[in-house]
Simulated assay, not measured.
Amino acid sequence: MARGAVFVIAMLQLLLVNDLTVGPRWLAPAIELIMLIPLSIATAWTQVRVRSATADHHWEAIRNYRLWIRRTAILLTAVVSLINCFALLQLVRRLLEGHGGSAQTLLVDALNIWVTNVIIFALWYWSTDRGGPPTCGLTKRAEADFLFPQMTLSDRELDNWIPGFVDYLFLAFTNATAFSPTDTLPLSARAKLLMMTEAMISLLTVALVAARAVNILA
């Protein structure tokens, strides 16, 4: 699902109405998809290796490949984050200069940037919590960065519960709408910093860009 999320981000960037991207409109999505393709191939290849692994050196090689995959995924997420922040800053700059486009296009682009921001931070939460998915089953999981409701229940069936990408997407969505934790609490410093950054970007998008567009409509 995470790879599908990156594809959705690329499509959203193509749908920006105003010229807010880095270079030509196709450049940012092309960079993201070019980075995503080898990452997807490496992930699929590693999954095949897991099924045939029998010796310790097999698992050691898989562990190294997964750590490389995690670093590449974090780099891809960072690139996507910078591109979306650039689009937001460009839109804010044009608004302040009085060249932001029509009210309708401002609303569309503000919504586009906001949705992209939610998906990006879902990827950040997913790739950093407990060392990220690549460490699952291969190394001792790190301490949790987030406290999900399922982790507080005494049901034995939930003792080994691990959050999936949808859980992080819900976390990112609620943080972007409420500008604060809801049912899931940040535990580590990096989780708090990530949530603060997402809320700040979301607040800027909603309060400044969308509000200005509504004023133009009025």
Rank of each mutant, 00 (worst) to 15 (best):
T184P: 02
E97Q: 09
I120P: 05
S81N: 00
T128L: 04
R71F: 02
R130Y: 12
W124M: 04
S188V: 12
R156P: 14
G131R: 15
G164I: 07
R190G: 05
W161Y: 14
L95R: 08
P181S: 15
A172V: 08
F165A: 04
F86W: 13
A73I: 05
G164W: 00
H99F: 01
T72S: 07
A144L: 00
N160Q: 12
P163M: 10
L82Y: 10
M151N: 03
D155P: 01
Q90E: 14
D129Q: 10
D109H: 08
L171K: 06
N117G: 14
V108G: 01
L91E: 03
A87R: 02
L76E: 04
D129F: 12
R94V: 04
I162D: 03
L76S: 10
L91N: 03
P181Y: 13
A176T: 05
V80G: 01
T177V: 13
V166T: 12
D167R: 04
T177Y: 01
R141A: 15
T182K: 13
D109W: 08
F165S: 05
T152L: 13
N160W: 04
W161F: 08
I120A: 01
G137L: 11
V80L: 09
D155M: 10
F179W: 02
L111M: 07
L88Y: 01
A122F: 00
L111V: 10
L187D: 09
A189R: 14
A172M: 12
L158H: 02
T184S: 11
L95C: 03
G98I: 08
E157R: 09
L82T: 15
